[in-house]
Amino acid sequence: MRFELDADQRDLAGALDALLSSAGTVAVARAWADGDHAPGLALWSRLTDLGVLSLATEATPVEVVVAFEALGRHAVPGPWVESAAYLPLALGREVTGVATVALPPLVPYALDADVADEVYVGSTPVASVGDRVGSVDRTRHLFRIGDAGDAEVHPELPGEAFDLAVLATAAQLLGAGERILADSVSYVKQRRQFGREIGSYQAIKHHLADVRIALDFARPLVLGAALGAVPASAAKVAAGDAAYLSSRTGLQVHGAIGYTQELDLSLWLTKVRALVTAWGTPAYHRARVLEGLL
């Protein structure tokens, strides 16, 4: 089966890329990580005006994938999966402002609950936010939800809203993996060692080619899941594996500088590591795929 975006979907991708390319998303993400939400909320407003929050209810999952791949490629911070994918379907309405959600045990903490206008456990609103929990991704501020009483709320079992959130996360992983690969290819063309660009060495070419293949194999699964032809869990596993391979390879080809927070690449490396287990671990989604086959 051949997957191609139509003209409107390509226009959406182009509009998002143009907006985010000029928005200084690296600075926005770094500010968000440090607790300065103002630049991120300003970008949130611009993306809302572009219709990102209404895609789940007014468009198709393909448009959701297009949008979230762009968000991942540009490392846009904030609870976008929660506000633009899960909650619109769970609540039956578009979210206004910033909203977040927890679905224990699969999603045990609420992302960016400190800045959200609405906080939910499943589709049940909660009034109190608990302690913050650490994340490998500094832009992901995770919070326990409510007091002991709120902890007894049992959210809905995984359904259409959960699968769309899983698909959106897979698209983010795909976008982040593509960005890491692009930055890695650019770097190996510039970095010289022993009198030649390191990208000219066959071993490095092979590693980068493996990433290209992994991402190219994951993309049809993500688009197939958007069309309902593939389980969302299969798309999440494939995109997570491909993005994780991209992050490991990107770290290797950048050498020691790749381990530093000062390098912008670190925003994507840590984001991939966090998203791989967000909205269900790889083991959970592999089990869902197996259950569907049986």
Score class of each variant (00 low, 15 high):
residue 63 E to Y: 09
residue 64 V to W: 01
residue 64 V to Y: 02
residue 64 V to M: 07
residue 65 V to W: 09
residue 67 A to T: 11
residue 69 E to F: 09
residue 69 E to K: 08
residue 70 A to D: 03
residue 71 L to I: 15
residue 73 R to F: 15
residue 74 H to C: 02
residue 74 H to D: 05
residue 74 H to L: 04
residue 79 P to I: 10
residue 80 W to G: 02
residue 80 W to E: 06
residue 82 E to Q: 14
residue 82 E to N: 09
residue 82 E to H: 11
residue 83 S to C: 08
residue 83 S to K: 07
residue 83 S to F: 11
residue 84 A to V: 08
residue 84 A to G: 11
residue 84 A to Y: 09
residue 85 A to Y: 00
residue 86 Y to V: 07
residue 87 L to E: 10
residue 87 L to V: 10
residue 89 L to Y: 14
residue 93 R to F: 07
residue 95 V to Q: 14
residue 96 T to S: 15
residue 96 T to I: 13
residue 97 G to K: 09
residue 97 G to H: 13
residue 100 T to E: 12
residue 101 V to K: 00
residue 103 L to H: 14
residue 105 P to I: 10
residue 105 P to M: 08
residue 106 L to Q: 12
residue 106 L to E: 13
residue 106 L to F: 09
residue 108 P to V: 00
residue 111 L to E: 13
residue 111 L to S: 13
residue 111 L to A: 13
residue 112 D to F: 09
residue 114 D to Q: 06
residue 114 D to Y: 05
residue 114 D to A: 14
residue 115 V to R: 10
residue 116 A to Q: 07
residue 117 D to M: 06
residue 117 D to N: 12
residue 118 E to T: 04
residue 118 E to I: 03
residue 119 V to G: 01
residue 120 Y to T: 01
residue 120 Y to L: 02
residue 121 V to C: 02
residue 121 V to F: 00
residue 122 G to M: 05
residue 124 T to W: 12
residue 125 P to C: 02
residue 125 P to R: 02
residue 129 V to W: 05
residue 130 G to S: 03
residue 130 G to K: 01
residue 131 D to S: 13
residue 132 R to K: 05
residue 132 R to A: 12
residue 132 R to M: 11
residue 132 R to G: 15
residue 133 V to N: 04
residue 133 V to T: 07
residue 133 V to G: 02
residue 134 G to P: 10
residue 134 G to C: 05
residue 135 S to Q: 04
residue 135 S to L: 00
residue 139 T to I: 05
residue 139 T to D: 02
residue 140 R to G: 00
residue 140 R to D: 02
residue 140 R to Y: 07
residue 141 H to Q: 04
residue 142 L to C: 03
residue 143 F to K: 00
residue 143 F to M: 03
residue 144 R to E: 08
